Amino acid sequence: MTTVGLLYPGHAAEEDFPRMESLLNGLNLPIVRTDIGEDAHRVDVLQEMGARERLAAGVEELRLSGAESVVWACTSGSFVYGWEGAHEQIRALAAAAGLPASSTAFAFAHAAGALGVRRVAVAATYPPDVTELFVRFLRDAGLDVVAARSSSVVTAAELARWGREHVLQLAATGDHPEAEAVLLPDTALHTVAYLPELEATVGKPVLTGNQVTVWEGLRLAERRGAWSEELGRLFARQGAEALTE
């Protein structure tokens, strides 16, 4: 059994994680919900959401759960600090937890690398200014962002109500002919149930917030052979092999 501890902001799409547990044998995903304060995709609010004291408050519970790695299961609450600031956030989290740590923002960069893709399209739920910060983060990670779409959704609560049609439309309209993969960054968005259909719709790998979060935790825990044909190309056999690299 591999245990990946997740720090998740509030309540939105956390049902994605039990679904992944059921599809990946021998995986335990304990979740500690962090205090989000105000529910808004606004830079100052997101920076407060990802403050080190808020994240540190949940690590003791994850340690007691037997976690082998910890992932801050939030994309915007990491990349809003910029490339260096996001690294500092994760270093502080690792020190507080005494475990390997990362965030969903870094998970996107590592997952794209594992799939061998460099040119990506971003299909974001965020307002334009927040989307632009994610684009900068990805470029700092060495990715070429060929297109970025903003949906200007203000709250996670609204996103949690999005269903299959909304999610498929988001990916389709955010795609670009030159992109080798499409990224859907928000962990407040339910995506895990739709991954095969998402990839069939755009004809290329689709990376989503909750999907890459779990992959990142497995990578940190050095879990071998974690694969499922229901979780997109990242978790296909070749993607699982990248966990060992």
Score class of each variant (00 low, 15 high):
3 T>W: 02
4 V>D: 01
4 V>I: 12
6 L>G: 05
8 Y>C: 02
10 G>T: 10
11 H>C: 03
13 A>V: 09
13 A>C: 11
14 E>R: 06
15 E>A: 15
17 F>I: 04
24 L>F: 13
25 N>C: 09
25 N>H: 13
31 I>K: 02
31 I>V: 15
33 R>L: 06
34 T>P: 06
41 H>P: 05
49 M>E: 01
50 G>W: 03
50 G>A: 04
59 V>Y: 01
60 E>N: 10
61 E>P: 02
65 S>T: 12
65 S>G: 00
65 S>Q: 07
68 E>Q: 15
69 S>I: 06
70 V>M: 05
72 W>H: 13
81 Y>K: 11
86 A>Y: 01
87 H>W: 13
89 Q>L: 13
93 L>S: 10
94 A>Q: 11
96 A>K: 09
97 A>N: 09
100 P>H: 06
105 A>F: 05
106 F>V: 09
107 A>E: 00
118 R>T: 15
119 R>H: 13
121 A>L: 09
122 V>L: 15
124 A>Y: 04
129 D>W: 10
132 E>T: 10
133 L>H: 10
133 L>S: 08
134 F>H: 15
142 G>E: 06
146 V>F: 08
147 A>N: 13
147 A>C: 05
148 A>D: 01
151 S>Y: 09
155 T>N: 07
158 E>T: 14
159 L>Y: 08
163 G>C: 09
163 G>Y: 09
168 L>T: 11
171 A>C: 10
173 T>V: 12
176 H>E: 07
176 H>N: 11
176 H>D: 14
177 P>T: 09
190 H>M: 07
191 T>M: 03
191 T>E: 00
192 V>R: 00
193 A>R: 15
193 A>L: 13
193 A>W: 01
194 Y>K: 05
196 P>W: 11
197 E>N: 06
201 T>S: 12
201 T>M: 14
203 G>E: 10
205 P>R: 00
214 V>M: 02
215 W>S: 05
215 W>R: 05
219 R>Y: 14
220 L>Y: 00
221 A>R: 04
224 R>S: 14
228 S>I: 08
229 E>K: 10
234 L>Q: 05
235 F>W: 15
235 F>E: 00
236 A>H: 14
236 A>Q: 04
238 Q>I: 03
241 E>K: 12
243 L>D: 01
244 T>C: 07
245 E>S: 12
